[in-house]
Design a protein around this nucleic acid. Structure first.
Lengths: 227, 227
DNA sequence: TTCATACTTTGGTTAGCATCGAACTATGAA
DNA sequence: TTCATAGTTCGATGCTAACCAAAGTATGAA
């Protein structure tokens, strides 16, 4: 009964269409203002404000003020993971009639999952790194190997800074579209940042879809082969 | 927006206290009748009936008639996984005030997760089997090794029958209390069944807690050491 | 200071839905 | 058949919460 109450409390926060749309938008990983989230959810500002207050009180969102803006973001990876798992069930149950449209296909290929790369590209990358011993999978844990630390430093990531933070460098995250793991953690986030900086990929605006540029695609595939 | 609607639809099913209590009860893995679930949720039969209809329509529950009884069970492992992940967030956010009571401690040590062993005992078992090469962890997948097939057959499990079914023999399942993986799949389920048959463990009634019998504890630890 | 923008608070309306009692259906037992 | 148990359907009630408009607060710009 206690378990049920907790369950209901969290789930009911997600269970409202307006709030769910906000949360889905925040799965993109970038913090958004109250107005942007109101737009996203299709409600007026006052309504959005009330919803955001509830989500923050409930611990699902974190807010930071910046001048007269208030930026909202998901409270953490665990929340993002929970949302993914609910989406997974919805995806399993949902496609009674509709076959995956072009948008869904793009999502399946590559998308942002909070702050790192997910979809087929993310899974392929995870597997390739594991095969090259850049990361070591031990049970549920994923760890950076020495080889990996050297390699990723050479790729332009500040591995030392990552190691000092509390956030795990490597984590595996279950992919709802492919049902396999991809790489999360600060390494996963750092890699995606780097891909964007190198113009290998571009975020499609107002969506979680990640598009590879033609040279980016080539470079990414080379990376996986030769890592 | 579409993503948000799907999300909300599923989450709102879980977001009602009565329904959440029913789902939490079904996390025990055993199918329960409508009356039992009504008791569990603390509502009258008509109310429970309406809730169960909604959960079934929503695809979260599966129902089988048996005489004048109707047994309800979770629709599948994905649903169970989703519930665990929501519980995980609740557990992370919840313990503002309360420190874990004796019941929670017992849950942390060993509990049933749908149909297999979870908690510290489950994680220890998973690690021990991996260390002995009875199971092989490859990325997100877990596979039974030949050594494992022989070993578990000797332990009294019908491995051949498991291999023929569609359900994966091995699967890893993330543990919310320990944040590590434990063994799910038909092997995980089969092992728990065997432990119960051998009287190594006992289910505490009306809860997910698993209690080791004193000889069972000894035998279990021996199993982990010598597997 | 004055105006504009970003957001929150308040107040009041509305809609949905959780709930129960009572009546109805179906299965099993005597 | 008749009675009992298990469950569903129906109708009515009441509460919650989602919603918006309007007024209020806070920050930045002119």
């Amino acid at each position: 009964m206690k378990a049920g109450t907790d369950l209901a409390q969290i789930a009911s926060l997600v269970g409202d269409p307006a709030r769910a749309n906000m949360l889905a938008a925040l799965m993109g990983g970038t913090a958004l203002t109250a107005s942007e989230l109101a737009m996203e959810a299709g409600v007026t500002l006052p309504t959005a404000s009330a919803h955001l207050a509830r989500l923050s009180d409930g611990g699902l969102l974190r807010m930071t003020r910046q001048g007269r803006h208030r930026y909202y973001a998901l409270a953490g990876h665990q929340v993002a993971g929970m949302l993914e798992s609910i989406m997974g069930v919805a995806a399993e149950l949902g496609p009674r009639k509709v076959l995956p449209g072009p948008r869904d296909t793009a999502m399946r290929e590559a998308r942002i999952c909070y702050d790192h790369l997910a979809g087929e590209a993310g899974v392929a990358m995870f597997d390739a790194f594991a095969a090259r011993d850049l990361i070591a999978i031990e049970g549920d844990e994923v760890n950076l190997t020495t080889r990996g630390a050297i390699y990723f430093s050479g790729f332009g990531l500040d591995i030392e800074a990552m190691l000092e933070k509390r956030r795990p460098v490597c984590r595996s995250c279950l992919d709802w579209s492919v049902r396999r793991s991809h790489l999360a953690g600060s390494l996963g986030a750092g890699l995606l940042d780097r891909f964007i900086a190198l113009r290998w990929v571009r975020r499609e605006k107002d969506s979680r879809v990640i598009r590879f540029t033609p040279p980016g695609r080539t470079a990414f595939e080379k990376l996986l082969r030769e890592a």
